[in-house]
Computed example of a mutant assay.
Amino acid sequence: MRIDLAGWTREATLGDHQAFLSLFERADRLGFDGVWFAEFHFRERLPYPSTLLLAAALFARTERLRIGTSVLVLPLHHPLALAEQLAQLDFQSAGRLDIGIGRGTDPETFAVLGIDHGTARERFEAAFGVLRAALSQGKASAADGPWRFSDVPVGPPPVQQPHPPLYVAGSTAETLRFAVAQDLPLLLSLEPPEARQLAIYRDELARAGRTGALAGSSLSRYVCIGATRAEAVARVDDLLPRLHRRRLAFAAARGIAPSGVPALDREAVLRDQVIHGDPEACHAAIIRLREATGIGALRCVFNGNGVLDNTAALAGMELFAAEVLPALRRAEAARPATVC
């Protein structure tokens, strides 16, 4: 099972640039498979609006770590220019780039760029068609003339799969239906957890008579690991109030009073959003999660999506890498080969 990192977004990216890069150099040496970064534009203080520039810096300082975008907001980009940049970055990294895409949900970013947010889905699907063709078979180029919404390729995806790999993020029935139609693996959300997304996705698979791409899809969990169960419980007890305070802050920014924000349901959060316990318990939980969902990749959030500092996150990463990763690798090696 692929084990990646996530959670370094928004305020979690603040601080010294070299220390930030060093954190992922350490993750590379620890044996994590990849890390995912989000695209946010026109936010005060945030230092990395371009995930591709950040990825380029990290590729130059790591040897095996994959880097993914979660997500590139396709309607904000010209797909031919984006395809060219992605192809270059994939070449520079010797094939270590993963591309997560989405249509974008922040109307303010669209407004700054003079793009009608109401066209987001149309622009997303059109841009995807051009991007996929350019990356997979080189059929789209500037010589073909300007791309248009009417340029969306019809029919099934090409036999030759895109390189680098493409993933799609989204929770609506329309986006999940699009993922089924295009045979795209999913980047499933952490908040809210993925149960609703998977239910819709499986319904769409059944309706289309398709097998889907769940084995290549990725889901996410907070990770609270301790050398003992008591240490892990203490980490959970530290994390959950911080998550609630962040929910209150986000709600206040939208004009919602604290009384309008329900308290976190501890049992539900631990069940649906957190891997927690000593190393043995964390390993067992990941195996159960894989068996229950059929998903082949996990994005581990050791920093609470920024509510914990990097020192605490790194301590969890190091314990996980020393105790859980080797057990997962052994379990993976012992699994019987499957015929696709």
Rank of each mutant, 00 (worst) to 15 (best):
F302W: 12
G296H: 08
F302M: 09
T293D: 14
G304P: 02
T293S: 12
G294F: 10
L298A: 14
A313D: 02
A315L: 10
T293W: 06
T311N: 07
L308P: 01
D309K: 01
I295D: 04
P326A: 15
A297H: 13
V301H: 12
C300E: 03
V324P: 05
G306A: 02
C300T: 09
F302Q: 01
N303P: 07
V324I: 07
C300V: 07
G294N: 11
L298Y: 05
R329V: 12
A297M: 08
A297I: 08
N303D: 15
P326K: 09
M317A: 07
A313L: 06
D309C: 01
R329Q: 15
C300P: 03
R299G: 01
R299E: 04
A313W: 00
A312G: 10
D309I: 03
A315V: 09
G316Q: 08
I295R: 10
P326R: 07
L308W: 04
V324M: 01
R329C: 15
A327T: 12
I295G: 10
L314W: 03
G306K: 11
I295E: 01
E318C: 04
P326L: 09
L319C: 04
L319G: 02
G294H: 14
G316L: 01
P326N: 13
T311P: 01
A312Q: 11
L298K: 06
A312K: 01
A312T: 08
G304F: 03
N305T: 10
G316N: 04
L325F: 12
A313I: 05
A322P: 06
G316A: 06
A327V: 04
G296P: 10
L319A: 01
F320M: 01
A312I: 08
G296N: 10
G296Y: 12
V324S: 01
V324N: 05
V301A: 12
M317R: 06
A312W: 00
M317I: 03
A315S: 11
R299I: 09
T311A: 13
L314T: 06
N310P: 12
C300Q: 00
A322H: 10
A297W: 08
A315G: 12
V301Q: 13
A297E: 11
N305A: 13
T311F: 05
F320N: 05
R329P: 07
V307N: 00
F302H: 10
G306V: 05
G304S: 07
E318I: 03
R330E: 10
A322Y: 06
A327F: 08
N305K: 15
V301I: 15
E318M: 03
F302P: 03
N303Q: 11
R330K: 15
A322W: 05
E318R: 02
L298E: 03
A321N: 04
E318Q: 08
L314M: 15
V301M: 13
D309W: 01
A315D: 11
L325D: 04
R329H: 15
P326Y: 00
N310S: 14
R299F: 03
L328N: 12
